[in-house]
Design a protein around this nucleic acid. Sequence first.
DNA 1: ATAGCTATATGACAATTATCATAATTTATA
DNA 2: TATAAATTATGATAATTGTCATATAGCTAT
Lengths: 228, 228
Amino acid sequence: MGNCKHCIIKELNSLRTLTNEELKCISSHKNEMTFKKGDVIFKEGMMLNGVYCISKGKCKLTKLSPNGKEQIVKFIKTGDMLGYRSVLGEEPVNLSVVALEDMDACFIPKKDIFDSIQHNKDFSKDMFKVVCSDLKEANSTIADMAQKTVRERLADTLLFLDETFGEDKEGNIDIKLSREEIANVIGTATESAIRLLSDLKKEGVICLMGKKIKIENKTALRKIGNGF
Amino acid sequence: MGNCKHCIIKELNSLRTLTNEELKCISSHKNEMTFKKGDVIFKEGMMLNGVYCISKGKCKLTKLSPNGKEQIVKFIKTGDMLGYRSVLGEEPVNLSVVALEDMDACFIPKKDIFDSIQHNKDFSKDMFKVVCSDLKEANSTIADMAQKTVRERLADTLLFLDETFGEDKEGNIDIKLSREEIANVIGTATESAIRLLSDLKKEGVICLMGKKIKIENKTALRKIGNGF
DNA sequence: ATAGCTATATGACAATTATCATAATTTATA
DNA sequence: TATAAATTATGATAATTGTCATATAGCTAT
């Protein structure tokens, strides 16, 4: 069992504000876990007994609509925490989480989280900021979903993925998503996503090589995202 | 200046968890305000120095998209708090708020809110629940916006408005919105909203009398909202 | 009360997007 | 490696939604 005190991952999230005392406590309670690509980490409706600190890998948070289509609502990556919405809200989970690649994570029991929220005002403040920031983002997404065309949303999504996950050595967006998953982020039919990606390729704005996507002209993509 | 200790409005929100000591403090700092229908309470981009406790009236929270269209993201009514996302997140406001009818509110400086968050664990817990609940709702809305048709979203919206604002003596939904505002909730063109409302009327699911809308068949409306 | 404005309503048409069909390509598996 | 299965790609067409035009109803201010 590693000691959280020396873990560099926590520097990437709110756990950085914890005292040595609190970290010691978490070290002894935490549960190290691994997930394989495709594994379901948790499912809509479940109660969560703690939060995950993601030390490696990426996952998608999805919601199932009544018609059976999956909507990708958010991505989580190395350094992010996962599950705090449910734990802090003391409600069942409202999203399902599936690993997009092999993952490592530490599970921290909710008692430790609540203890620190109560006694460590820095941690409490930071967690408020995280949840509030999520809420701000979600509100923007609602407006975008409601007002923008599929083509605009595709452009925004590509820019978002590029910014969030960075690029590999060849400049490709560093996340591997199927066309169906891209469609499920945008909220459109898979065929529409494929077609519009082809269009962007023909226009020379992006480059497609299998699942790899490279943005050739960020400025043009931004313009498209804003409706020009 | 009224004394918060005896205010019944606070029983409707997280302020109910405050101690007499804290309420006394807020009583002496709070600022009673009124707004006329159409008044802008605050605007996207502003910094907020506190939160509002709404003692009377309704308002809409809107976001402007790059193309200039307004999206209504949320409604606030009597008993709700307003502005906590920005204050707790220590960020500028991301939504504009406009009064839908004459309103009364108390403005509470953020210092008092932060003090209570730090020292009153019930209040802190409750505020987490409120923000987390907002986030949960927002995530559902994202999925609905992305996956549902305009007609489905209209049905959902009518049911939501009915549930949120209740009905007057004649059974009409107890909020007065223009067709344009209804369109801005759904995320569609005003003409489309008007047309689909007419359709629902022809089908006998709702009854329209000027701005007054009455749901005649809730079950049918729910079915429509779920894609049948 | 009436002129002028705004909101609501509806038709006609265009643009966008979804659906279904089928082919080409990639990936997984025996 | 060969074969099956899944994914990606593209065409054809239908359904949905947006835009523009115009008519009507309702409200506001002199």
